[in-house]
Simulated scan of single mutants.
Amino acid sequence: MRENYNSFKYWENVINENKTIRGHMFMQKRPTEGSFYFHTLIFGRKNGMNNLWGYVPNVKGLIGYIQYSFLQEAFYKWIHGQEKVVTRIPHLTVDKIAIEGEKLKKISKEVCINMKNDYEFLSSLWEMPADKSEIQLRNFIIDFNKKWMGDNTEFLYIKVFSTPEELGEFVISSTLITSTEKELENKIGMSIDQWRDICKFAIEDSIKGQIFRKVLLKKLSEVY
Rank of each mutant, 00 (worst) to 15 (best):
A130K: 14
D118S: 07
L92A: 04
S108G: 03
A130S: 14
E120T: 13
F144Q: 01
W126Y: 15
S133Q: 10
D143G: 12
E110D: 09
F140A: 07
E127L: 13
V94C: 02
P90K: 00
E100R: 08
K84F: 05
S108N: 07
D118L: 10
E102T: 01
D95S: 09
E83P: 05
N117Q: 13
I113M: 13
I135P: 05
I142K: 09
I97N: 03
N145D: 05
K106N: 02
E102N: 09
V86A: 02
L104R: 03
N145G: 00
V111D: 09
V86R: 00
S124L: 13
K116I: 11
L137Q: 07
A130R: 15
L122A: 05
K105D: 11
I142P: 13
I135H: 12
S123K: 14
I113K: 06
S108F: 01
L137E: 13
P90M: 03
V85I: 10
E100N: 10
F121V: 10
R138H: 04
L137A: 06
P129V: 06
E110V: 02
H91M: 07
I141W: 06
F121W: 13
N145F: 02
Y119E: 12
N145Q: 00
I97T: 02
L122V: 03
R138S: 10
K109Y: 04
L125D: 14
P129N: 14
E102Q: 05
D143W: 11
I89L: 02
D118H: 09
S133R: 07
I97S: 04
E102M: 09
K106P: 05
N114E: 11
